[in-house]
């Protein structure tokens, strides 16, 4: 299933940040989202995930296909690693969590409370959650933050395996993951905040 974005315009806190975005995300492909801080990468991912409405344009093929990983991992500190994963697995329709534990080397940590994990271990748990969702399109917002070199490799391998199974991924990142995919550069030239006069015109 291809995710198609046509003439999309998005806003953060009422201020338009990106306009006229056009791209398509094919099965088996990754799209790397690059751009300076504050340009609207997170806003774009949140819009595609359906958490906020776009101000213009269309998103097709996203309905119930997207697994979204935000900056925070949605981990409950008083549940164990396995309980955290098993919860998300049953919310998304009971997938086996063992492959996810294997992919991010979480087996040794399985019975630890998630609150006692290090930042990088928590991130690995957050990324392992993507594997139990069973959703074809991954939206990852700076997934490699606080990961060490080894864990970055685990992540890249997991994404590669996901792409190999016909999934796709949209990844906002500042580092090179060595993935096969295009780079979508969102730059200030595409962000055109509207003059305030236009807003007033709309209200009057």
């Amino acid at each position: 299933m291809t995710l198609t974005v046509t003439e999309l315009a998005i806003a953060r806190g009422g201020v338009p940040v990106l306009e006229r975005l056009n791209f398509a995300l094919q099965p088996g492909k990754a799209l790397i989202l690059r751009g300076p801080n504050g340009i609207g990468k997170t806003t774009l991912l949140r819009t595609l995930a359906g958490l906020q409405p776009p101000i213009a344009g269309r998103v097709e093929g996203a309905e119930d296909k997207i697994a979204y990983a935000s900056h925070s991992d949605g981990i409950k500190p008083t549940l164990t690693v396995v309980e955290n994963l098993a919860f998300w697995s049953s919310v998304f329709g009971a997938n086996d969590i063992q492959p996810a534990l294997d992919a991010y080397a979480l087996n040794e940590l399985a019975d630890r409370n998630a609150g006692n994990l290090s930042a990088g271990q928590k991130r690995r748990l957050g990324l392992a959650r993507m594997l139990v969702t069973g959703r074809p399109i991954w939206m990852l917002d700076e997934p490699t933050v606080s990961l060490d070199k080894n864990a970055v490799k685990m992540f890249a391998d997991a994404v590669r395996a996901h792409l190999g199974q016909g999934g796709s991924a949209l990844i906002a990142t500042h580092i090179d993951l060595g993935l096969d995919g295009e780079v979508l550069d969102v730059g200030p030239n595409k962000a055109k905040p509207k003059p305030i006069d236009d807003f007033d015109g709309g209200f009057l």
């Binding site: 949140r46 995930a49 359906g50 119930d64 997207i66 925070s72 919310v91 959650r129």
Partner: peptide
């Protein structure tokens, strides 16, 4: 909301 679960629940099939 603080730990991000609410965002994830909102994008879940529920």
């Amino acid at each position: 909301w603080e730990d991000g679960s609410l965002d994830l629940l909102a994008t879940a099939p529920l």
